[in-house]
C-alpha cells in the first residue's frame, strides 16, 4: 500500500505535467500551420465524439517532417548544436575535473565551504552572469582593455558574437554540473587504493590514470551528460553571446515559435531533437542499471 503511494505520487505528477503536454506537442508537430490562435490545425474536438476523432486523425500528416529534410537550415542547426555541445562538454571536463580533484583532496574542514563556493555563483541569475561576460568579451570590454594595457595585442580581439564566446558561456554556466558529480565520485574514493598502487610501483601519474580516473568514471559520465544535454538545446547563451552565424537548434526553435509563429514546424524540430537525445540517455540508463546489478 505504502509502496503504491510512493510510486503513484511522482508517477501521476509526471504523467500530467510532462507526458500529456509532450503528447500535445507531438500532436501539433503532425498538424498544419494556421494563422489563428492557436496557430495550427486540426484541433481535437472530443464533443463531436467518434466522428471528431476520425476527422482529427485524418488531418494529421508528416508534412512538417518532410519539410525539415528539404531545408538545410535545420540540418546545419542540428550539426552545429551537436558540435558546440561536444566541444563545450570536453572543455567543461578539462576545467572541472582539476577543480573537483582539488576539492576532494582538500582538508576535510574546507570541503563544505568549497562545495558551497561551487554552488554559490550558480545561485545568481545566470542571465546576469552571461551578461557579465558580454562586458568582459566585447571589443571595448575588460579583457581587451587588459590585454592592450599589458601590450600583448595592439588591436582588440573579436570574441563576443563568435562561437568562442558561446563555448566560454556554456562552460562557465554549466561548470557546477560537471564539478559536483565528479567531486562526489572522487570524495567517496578510498584513498588507500592510491597508496596501494604506489606501493606496487606506480608513479603518481600512472596511479591517477589507472586508479583515480576509472573510479571516478561514473561521476565523469554523469557530469558530461549534465553539461551536454542542456547545452544542446541552449537558447539564452547563443542569443546573448553568439553572433548571427552561431546556429543552435534552441535559437531556431524560439524563432520559429515567436517570430514565424510556425508552431507545427517548431514542434517537429523539437520532436526530432528529442529522438536524437533519447538514444544516448537510454544507453546511459542501461549502463547504470547493469553496473548496479553487477555490484549488487
Amino acid at each position: 500500500m505504502r509502496r503504491a503511494i510512493l510510486i503513484l505520487v511522482p508517477y501521476l505528477w509526471l504523467l500530467a505535467l510532462f507526458l500529456v503536454p509532450f503528447l500535445i506537442v507531438l500532436k501539433i508537430s503532425l498538424s498544419d500551420a494556421e494563422l489563428s490562435i492557436p496557430p495550427y490545425t486540426p484541433k481535437l474536438d472530443l464533443t463531436a465524439g467518434w466522428a471528431g476523432i476520425k476527422e482529427f486523425l485524418a488531418g494529421l500528416d508528416f508534412e512538417n517532417f518532410e519539410f525539415l529534410t528539404t531545408d538545410d537550415l535545420y540540418w546545419k542547426a542540428y550539426l552545429s548544436s551537436l558540435q558546440i555541445a561536444v566541444i563545450s562538454t570536453v572543455m567543461s571536463l578539462l576545467v572541472g575535473y582539476p577543480i573537483a580533484y582539488g576539492m576532494a583532496n582538500a582538508p576535510d574542514h574546507w570541503r563544505p565551504t568549497l562545495m558551497m563556493l561551487v554552488i554559490l555563483p550558480f545561485w545568481t541569475s545566470f542571465l546576469i552572469r552571461v551578461y557579465s561576460w558580454m562586458g568582459i568579451l566585447s571589443t571595448e570590454g575588460y579583457l581587451n582593455q587588459l590585454l592592450i594595457g599589458m601590450g600583448l595585442i595592439s588591436e582588440p580581439l573579436t570574441i563576443l558574437n563568435t562561437n568562442t564566446a558561446v563555448y566560454i558561456g556554456i562552460v562557465y554556466t554549466y561548470l557546477p554540473f560537471m564539478i559536483l558529480p565528479v567531486y562526489s565520485a572522487l570524495e567517496r574514493m578510498d584513498a588507500s587504493l592510491l597508496e596501494a598502487a604506489e606501493d606496487l610501483g606506480c608513479s603518481r601519474i600512472t596511479a591517477f590514470w589507472l586508479v583515480t580516473v576509472p573510479l571516478s568514471r561514473n561521476g565523469i559520465i554523469a557530469g558530461c551528460f549534465l553539461v551536454f544535454i542542456p547545452a544542446i538545446g541552449e537558447f539564452v547563451i547563443p542569443s546573448l553571446l553568439g553572433g548571427s552565424r552561431t546556429l543552435m537548434i534552441g535559437k531556431v526553435l524560439w524563432e520559429e515559435f515567436f517570430n514565424n509563429r510556425d508552431w507545427p514546424v517548431a514542434s517537429t524540430v523539437a520532436v526530432i531533437l528529442l529522438l536524437i537525445l533519447i538514444i544516448p540517455i537510454i544507453l546511459f540508463q542501461r549502463n547504470e542499471q547493469k553496473q548496479r546489478e553487477a555490484e549488487g
Partner: peptide
C-alpha cells in the same frame, strides 16, 4: 532533462 526548455515551456503553456 533532455527536453529543450523551449519545448517544456511551450508544452506546459498548451496544457
Amino acid at each position: 532533462l533532455v527536453m529543450p526548455e523551449v519545448i517544456t515551456g511551450l508544452s506546459l503553456l498548451l496544457l
